[in-house]
Nucleic acid binder design. Structure first.
Length: 496
RNA sequence: GGGCCGUUAGCUCAGUCGGUAGAGCAUUGCACUUUUAAUGCAGUGGUCAUUGGUUCGAAUCCAAUACGGCCCA
């Protein structure tokens, strides 16, 4: 336990009040039962006039955190906040049991309380609860941030998300939306006949992506296990097994630096569909993105970081090479067609090129450096070189490239999908190439996964698969500039 | 990894040229039975991120470190 030595007078005062409560009875009771949240009350009675509300004599029991306290002698107004929202409560000394009002005056903002009373409308028109009784259910020992500005310090908001969520409506909105987006995707796929599955997070051979894994150790088996960098190879094993439409939404882990775009654990959905190709998945992705915008955001035009993005019209589609030429008028197709001239272009752009880099790798690096961040409008980029796509199916007409796409919006890659490589001999050869690169010092290159090859040898039906980065997707739709804004408890350096 | 910026009361922020540490909210006391950033009066509250240096004197100038933010790789 990390002892937090930030005791001050405010906390000491509250501790004393708690000590008094312990002396006079149960300090942390759990026998109060509410019969409603506050938001439904506002929904149901919020529009009715004072006389109608009063005549209904609606008796309610509500509970929540005390967020505002306005004492005026023998009467007080407070606001309580529960999961659904905020509601005002009116307390009068004469309307409460003997002595309760005096106790209430000692309570602090942040305390958790239970309220019993009837609904009424105040002189200024706010639907409120006139309390017939109130109870302190949990004493809060730490003062909340200032009521008007809330908690604005970004570091504190991430480190103490519980305080952020108490104080900031915007933060609650973002995480509710995140949950709704995940739920939407799940229902979208289930409605199309996909099955949600769970595959290993601890893998003996980490596969499915280019990334450095976290390593752990299994004591009983005395062996290394890797936290997965992607679920891909296991999901495709399931398609071999006859689960022809599967998906998994969960965490993957990559042992990389922290930034506004990277968290060591992040949430991804991957889905696989037999008897489909990458073009089918582009259509599906387009429908999904448009659906999230329309059904959850209420409009196909999304405002992100000060600019509108219209997901309504068909998304732009261009190949890697087309996009490089489009955004770099000074580069010619001929220069990109051959390794040495492409390498010269790359060096001119400040991209380091090593001997092991083939033409495909060099083309891709030129694309990443000069095009990716400029892909603002929703765009599918297709035809990635096989050299950088070790799990994707080769194009029938041009085996140099694969039947693969990535989806970009706002200058960020949100999705990556392809027709799956189901030729076990080609896959074995690609693994061997990866193993060579790895042996030459590329830590991110893939391992040779013999069991996966064995699975392919039993026969993977023609299949298309895709992964979508949920955190980045949520950043886009919730208008958040940092991945830390959309992860409840982002990884941070230890507190000092 | 490199550059720039930030760190002052529980929170949000001022702090001039290097000369006794400031405000609002919160909190404490008093008043107040329809307020809503309630109001009025009076108080309390500080390791100025940390360590070292310059100086008669450092929140302020310099250096290093920690954490965070932005930009670049």
């Amino acid at each position: 336990m990390n002892d937090v030595h930030d005791e001050n007078k405010l906390i000491a005062q509250r501790r004393e009040k708690l000590a008094e409560m312990r002396k006079s009875g149960l300090a942390f009771p759990n026998d109060f039962r509410r019969n409603t949240l506050v938001e439904p009350l506002l929904q149901q009675y919020g529009e009715e006039d004072a006389a109608t509300v009063e005549a209904r004599n609606v008796r309610v029991k509500a509970a929540g955190r005390l967020m505002a306290k306005r004492l005026m002698g023998k009467a007080s107004f407070i606001h309580i906040q529960d999961q659904s929202g905020r509601m005002q409560v009116f307390l009068q000394k004469d309307g409460l049991p003997e002595g309760v009002y005096e106790h209430f005056k000692q309570w602090d903002i942040g305390d958790i309380i239970g309220v019993e009373g009837t609904l009424f409308r105040t002189k200024t028109g706010e639907l409120s609860i006139k309390a017939s009784n109130v109870r302190l259910l949990t004493k809060s020992l730490r003062p909340l941030p200032e009521k008007f500005h809330g908690l604005t310090d970004g570091e504190l908001r991430h480190r103490q998300r519980y305080v952020d969520l108490v104080m900031n409506d915007e933060s609650r909105r973002v995480f509710r939306l995140r949950i709704a987006i995940i739920q939407y995707i799940r229902e979208f796929l289930v409605a199309r006949g996909f099955m949600e599955v769970e595959t290993p997070m601890m893998q003996p051979i980490p596969g499915g992506a280019r990334a450095k894994p976290f390593v752990t150790h299994h004591n009983a088996l005395d062996m290394a296990l890797y936290l997965r960098i992607a679920p891909e190879l296991y999901l495709k094993r399931l398609v071999v097994g006859g689960f022809e439409k599967v998906f998994e939404i969960n965490r993957s882990f990559r042992n990389e630096g922290l930034s506004t775009k990277h968290n060591p654990e992040f949430t991804m959905i991957e889905f696989y569909q037999a008897y489909a190709d990458h073009r089918d998945l582009m259509d599906l992705t387009e429908e999904l993105m448009r659906g999230i915008a329309r059904d959850l955001m209420g409009s196909t035009t999304i405002e992100h970081q000060g600019r509108p993005y219209d997901l309504g019209p068909p998304f732009r589609r261009m190949t890697v090479l087309e996009s490089v030429l489009h955004y770099n008028p000074d580069i010619t197709a001929d220069e990109l067609a051959e390794r040495d001239s492409a390498a010269a272009v790359a060096r001119r752009l400040g991209i380091p090129v090593v001997a092991a880099d083939g033409l495909g790798k060099i083309q891709t690096e030129i694309f990443e450096k000069t095009v990716e961040h400029r892909l603002d409008e929703p765009t599918f980029i297709t035809d990635y070189p096989a050299e950088v796509s070790p799990l994707a199916r080769r194009n029938d007409d041009h085996p140099f490239i694969t039947d693969r796409f990535e989806f970009f919006v706002g200058g960020r890659e949100l999705a990556n999908g392809f027709s799956e490589l189901n030729d076990p001999e080609d896959q074995a050869e690609r693994f061997r190439q990866q193993a060579e690169i790895k042996a030459a010092g590329d830590e991110e290159a893939m391992h040779y996964d013999a069991d996966y090859i064995r699975a392919l040898e039993y026969g993977l039906p023609p299949t298309a698969g895709e992964g979508i980065g949920i955190d980045r997707l949520v950043m886009f739709f919730t208008d958040c500039p940092s991945i830390r804004d959309v992860i409840l408890f982002p990884h941070l350096r230890p507190e000092t």
